[in-house]
Design a protein around this nucleic acid. Structure first.
Lengths: 206, 206
DNA sequence: TTTTTATTTTACCAACTGGTCAAAGTAACG
DNA sequence: CGTTACTTTGACCAGTTGGTAAAATAAAAA
């Protein structure tokens, strides 16, 4: 007999409600940051009562932590798959595309991350100094090699990474500003074309 | 007799304390956003008592508003001085330099702005859709003309502006992340060189 | 010096906040 | 059906929050 629990030990209703909560929490936290977000608001938006929220999660902080840690895997992955064996420009451009895709499909997650960084990364500082730094150190070496071998134009590899982060995330994080200026256009469509051009001119040997 | 009032109708002590408050408020608001910032915290950091704060400003919101409106002039100015009569590349690059200089010298202001945008720009949305949009519309026309005439490489002028915003502000807004990765380097020094290269390759006809 | 004006503090509020608890309600199983 | 395990609610609480009022203090003017 399976009982009413699912494989991971959660009932159907538990999974559904936890999902509601996480979705509402993402909405709120990504806008107002941790301290600016109120449990009442998250409760209301998720359609549950506040004590009911706290039946599923032990605290406000726990919800926030779970959101952030769920994010981090998604966030590091696109860089991980930059492959030293592939075509240099295509590898970098692939990273750009994956990153832009994330900003397009998960803009709230991007803003949640931005909020965390703006506050000085109190929760994920370890990951930044550890996993992220390690990953960036590794991948910049590859880029440096490509650059040295003339497979791409000479470039500061760390700042290349930063510019990829900045250019892609900007479309999610500053969405409000972009839409205030661009009233007709679809930002992400043209961003895709624009970034293709930008990185092509920046990296492709002529 | 001058009396103890200064030219602008504020006493010396009033000016000094308002300055303390604004400085402390900038510290706090730029980190935690409006809702995440507490008056007690601002009071403590400025060395005044909370009721004393509210003697100088009518409310928390008033402090925040004054900070933001003080910012906006600074923020729009660098784009204003992009001159259609000058050398195209140098004009754009001048804008990049001024913007990067702002991020370097006023990183907290940059983060305050970022926080406001992340929250959907509740306070400055009008300015974004009005003054900013007007200014961008105007300047992109100039860039488009340069592009059409072959004075710079063909480019999407709006996204060029966005990329300038994103690349320069990133060094202020994501400072924490950058310093977690770059432990030895001075980010802004190299950013300056890097952006020179980037925009040179992006815009200069070969 | 006295009077007037400006500044600061103390004590206080009502509303809100994150969180608890026990009781009531609802599913699922035997 | 009854029993058991899970879920939801309402009442509540202690600490915090933005803000007020009046008294006390300090500075300037007369």
């Amino acid at each position: 007999m399976k009982g009413y629990k699912m494989g991971n030990g959660q009932s159907r209703i538990q999974k559904k409600n936890k999902d509601f909560i996480m979705k509402a929490a993402l909405d709120i936290f990504s806008k107002y940051g941790f301290r600016g977000s109120k449990l009442d608001q998250i409760a209301k938006q998720s359609g549950l009562s506040k004590p009911n929220l706290l039946y599923y999660f032990p605290s406000k902080e726990a919800i926030h932590r779970e959101l952030l840690s769920g994010l981090l895997e998604n966030w590091l992955d696109p860089l991980r798959s930059l492959n030293s064996e592939g075509d240099p420009f295509e590898e970098v451009m692939g990273y750009v595309r994956r990153k832009l895709y994330l900003s397009k499909t998960l803009p709230k997650e991007s803003r949640l991350f931005a909020n965390e960084i703006l506050q000085g990364a109190p929760i994920i500082k370890d990951v930044l100094k550890g996993e992220l730094k390690y990953l960036v150190d590794e991948k910049t070496k590859i880029i440096q090699k490509w650059s040295d071998e003339g497979l791409i134009l000479p470039i500061h590899p760390y700042h290349l990474i930063f510019s990829i982060w900045s250019l892609t995330q900007h479309y999610a994080d500053f969405d409000t500003q972009i839409r205030a200026v661009l009233t007709n256009e679809k930002p992400f469509e043209n961003a895709s074309v624009y970034l293709e051009t930008l990185f092509s001119r920046l990296l492709k040997p002529s």
